[in-house]
Design a protein around this nucleic acid. Structure first.
Lengths: 252, 252
DNA sequence: TGAAAATAAATTGTCAGACAATTAGCTTCC
DNA sequence: GGAAGCTAATTGTCTGACAATTTATTTTCA
């Protein structure tokens, strides 16, 4: 375990990288205990605060966990699916919001991936997945629901569909794609008519999944993708029209 | 910007969470400068080392970057696709290696997602994507190539295919799925025969993408998925047979 | 006057040492 | 035997200091 001496990075970054390599290469296995902070400080010839900064970097990625007390220390953490979901969602959401990713591109990616899950979900969905989807459809049918909650329910329904594939790795990869769309969807104002259309498509998808009819599910998903993109384009068009009006001095 | 007072987490984790919320909610926009460490320490009523640990946590997730000097400080970082790829790959690789995910499950997820890219790639692939794929096929045809390099080239080919979809968000989501398979693929010993079969399928896929024939590309991808899973199952079978022999005391 | 050089100021990076809080294990006492 | 207390190890946090780096300002000199 050695840090790169002629690196331009911070000491704490170098040390974090050295330990990360040990973990990713399998030299440090799950639940293995790292040397104490004092020992690491001595080993790398740095001070304890510097070691601590390095450890916090690793903790931020859920690579280690720490425990106080006599038998405490830093331990290699088994990255759980839950933690991985969380990181996936954080990264995906920021990537989309910070890079001016167009609604169309994000939507295309999301539905392309979701369509990949549909056949598996149709084959393997279990009663709880169907129940979850029906529950969300019921929620969405409440006209008192705010646009934001409508989007949240939309996300929940789609995650249930993805989970129906019975492949946790697939669920993990899709988590970011589905959740990161929520902020973009929140820009849309859902009229009673558009809600009705979406709920109708959600019902068709759920019915198809229940009937294990992958073809119908795919068709409905494609229609939903088209419809969602249309809504997105309408918002963009309205926005640019308003901006143009503003620049010409037209009142609101 | 306030930290949760009755949280069981570390102070540095609470502060990191508070700042992360500000970034994710958009209150701190890209390139905005955070208060200096001394100011943050005063604001949160903690010491500077604690603030620094919090900032390192955020830096580990590429949420901020720091700069020394008079006009330096911590700035909200625009999460680039490159950085997001990296985090995606790290997380995916660890998730698979630490959770005893079966080869089949990981493989199924990967090919399901990749099949979702194929139609888009067939429609939009550009010459550089085809060239990259051909180049990797040529590399793979060299019998002197080690198994590890063969896998690396395999990953490179599939990433070129994914990038051919022309959707960077899709490429981002697939990066983890494709790259994280590499350690699992490395467990397989590729015979000349299996290499030939794989290269043949790679060629068919590339030809189909070049001909913009999404159907043929999908068929070849499915065959490749089946073949890869067969190889994986053979390895597992051989391994369990050997283990059983060992437990009965049979010599190697 | 203009440009180069020196200086000052602000900020992060690093260090040393200390004490608090927590936890496991051991010891002592009943 | 069990409960209470003590001890040791370890992480969590604080204080204060100095080094390194970068920008802005001032001074100096041609």
């Amino acid at each position: 375990m050695k840090r790169d001496p002629d690196s331009s990075k911070d000491l704490s970054a170098q040390i974090a990288a050295a330990i990360r390599d040990e973990i990713m290469s399998g030299k440090l296995i799950v639940d293995a205990r790292l040397p104490s902070e004092a020992e690491l400080a001595e080993h790398f010839a740095v001070s304890r605060p510097t070691v601590r900064e390095a450890l916090k970097r690793l903790a931020a990625q859920s690579l280690i966990r720490t425990q106080r007390g006599a038998t405490g220390g830093a331990f290699v953490n088994r990255l759980s699916f839950e933690e991985a979901y969380g990181q996936q969602i954080t990264t995906s959401t920021l990537l989309l919001s910070m890079n001016a990713v167009s609604f169309d591109v994000a939507c295309e990616a999301r539905f392309a991936l979701e369509r990949a899950c549909a056949p598996l979900a149709a084959a393997r969905r279990r009663p709880e997945h169907l129940a979850q989807m029906r529950r969300e459809i019921a929620r969405q049918s409440d006209p008192a629901l705010s646009d934001e909650d409508f989007c949240a329910s939309d996300v929940a329904l789609h995650r249930a569909l993805v989970d129906g594939s019975g492949n946790p790795v697939l669920s993990y990869h899709l988590a970011g794609a589905v959740e990161a769309m929520q902020p973009l969807m929140n820009m849309i104002t859902f009229t009673a008519r558009s809600r009705g259309a979406i709920i109708d498509l959600h019902s068709r998808i759920t019915d198809a999944i229940e009937a294990q009819d992958a073809g119908s599910a795919d068709t409905a998903l494609c229609e939903l993708a088209d419809y969602t993109m249309t809504l997105g384009r309408d918002v963009m068009a309205a926005r640019s029209t308003r901006a143009a009006d503003h620049s010409r001095g037209t009142p609101d």
